[in-house]
Design a protein around this nucleic acid. Sequence first.
DNA 1: CATGAATGAGTTTTCATTCAT
DNA 2: TATGAATGAAAACTCATTCAT
Lengths: 176, 176, 176, 176
Amino acid sequence: MAAQGLEATKVAQITAAAGVGKGTFFTHWPSKDAFVASLVDTLLTDLARRVRPVGLAPTDAEALVADVAAVHLRFFQLRPEAAALLNQSLSLATGGEAHALVAARLEEHLELVAGMIAPAGEQMGWPRERSRELALAVVATASGFFWLGGALDLGADTPLELLDRLARALARGLNR
Amino acid sequence: MAAQGLEATKVAQITAAAGVGKGTFFTHWPSKDAFVASLVDTLLTDLARRVRPVGLAPTDAEALVADVAAVHLRFFQLRPEAAALLNQSLSLATGGEAHALVAARLEEHLELVAGMIAPAGEQMGWPRERSRELALAVVATASGFFWLGGALDLGADTPLELLDRLARALARGLNR
Amino acid sequence: MAAQGLEATKVAQITAAAGVGKGTFFTHWPSKDAFVASLVDTLLTDLARRVRPVGLAPTDAEALVADVAAVHLRFFQLRPEAAALLNQSLSLATGGEAHALVAARLEEHLELVAGMIAPAGEQMGWPRERSRELALAVVATASGFFWLGGALDLGADTPLELLDRLARALARGLNR
Amino acid sequence: MAAQGLEATKVAQITAAAGVGKGTFFTHWPSKDAFVASLVDTLLTDLARRVRPVGLAPTDAEALVADVAAVHLRFFQLRPEAAALLNQSLSLATGGEAHALVAARLEEHLELVAGMIAPAGEQMGWPRERSRELALAVVATASGFFWLGGALDLGADTPLELLDRLARALARGLNR
DNA sequence: CATGAATGAGTTTTCATTCAT
DNA sequence: TATGAATGAAAACTCATTCAT
């Protein structure tokens, strides 16, 4: 799916790869879109599991934001298909049930990140009521970097240290 | 197209909106994908026109990077459909001609940006041979911010000054 | 089934309503069509049970025909689903086993009715070798009235006396 | 379609018989059900064209009712597929748009017939507010006779005179 | 005997694309 | 050059039926 795209991946191909009949797919998910939504759900749950611990260890504001950003970058670098999935799932028929689910799930993740970095952001002078935009910047940078990068064969081999520098740059810069 | 998605926008709808017959579409573009590619081409040409001037006025390294980032952010904020278009066009059948065109065009834009900020990056200690990643970070942050944001009704009304702060944060952070 | 139609009623719905597993259905009937055929069988058996007594009490020819018609009309009025079932079962794949069964069963019922009213019909001048058509007219009027009527919310509340008048009209008219 | 049933007749078969591509069907009708509804519309328009003239020539009440019934019987005898179509079209997904259309169209026809025979019916003592039931009896007898008959190879060769006798019987009987 | 997960044949419908006019 | 009717490949989804448990 990562290689050929969500839309281009047919249900028949999925079931064939799974070694089951075509109909079996629909005993597990009511539609292809629902399946994609469930994939995004899993993906964001995984991502959250990586992000949450960062908030536990006490550090200064700058390090916290940098760490959150770094976790996102590393996550999507290790799973380029996750970036592809997340970005393509937003192309699901706007107005459809699945799109709404994905958007809601993404919103939820943003809320999580915003909740974690809002205090740090405030300390750096970033308005609290705009913490969601701050979180969005962090998430979008990471997911966008590897989504666009995926199309250009860029990012997969970017050294961890450079990724970290990117993350820290954002945090340090904010912390003028 | 921005509202309902690339795939969901049918050729008939496009020609109806243009007030021409359905067949006329194919006298101008050989396929729908080619049309999308041409749209991306136009979009990146426009973007380049905004970006280029930034490199002409001599400033210090930090300001240059910040300005390039800021131009990207402003561009996509003013044209949310551009972010949607760019991100969705990457979902075009991988391996297809149109996908290749889009990727090549994006690559070209990255090259432009990389060329502009590479010296500044180097001055800040960012390895020159990794300048494309730096450019990618700048572009992806801007396009990703408004692509994800578009799905969450976020970003459209983010004050310019905050967007600028974001841009400058990245530059200032890098310039430790 | 009466409400949504034979075809629209899925096996899963039937078994769910019966509170048994889906597979259980097929331990009782070899196929859905066979089930429908058995339903028609039961239906016509019930109908025959109501019709037969009419032939026992000795009356004049006109009254006999009228009574047979009246029994049919009353039967289908009391069981609108029977009219729906009978008429829809004839839509079963022509040439299929189930269709043949239903047709044969209907034929049998017609034979019964024809046998009962043939003498009366003959007395009224209706050719004996055409008694099946006479029987068909009686049965079709009743089943058709409530089948078409069912789609138009007509017939369910038609007073018994009017239905009887209809039945007697046919008989009296024949008995010129 | 008459031979194998509405449901059993696939769109592919229709277009093949018409010598056009499969997709062409959907440039003329939005769905198979809509096509069936249009068929019923045509059918009832044809039928109405035959029925209407009967009301113009002045006759006595009994003859009028008999003639209306006779026209219906003859119509469906000459076109057995019409009886099949009408009866099967009522099996279209209840609640669907097509079903509603068919029902409305049938209702309209009933109204026509009711309007024609209501005065005669009243003269014979049939309550005016029940004229629709009277019309239903006339229509249902004819359509039902050939629908059930079609399944039993009965009716197609029933002599016209017998059909007329049936029609007159109903009228004469009512006119006690 | 009951069960329900698995199956895949079969159908409608969509829509980019063609091409005669 | 513009048009839109015709096309048919493709794809999601349904559901009666099977069968291992």
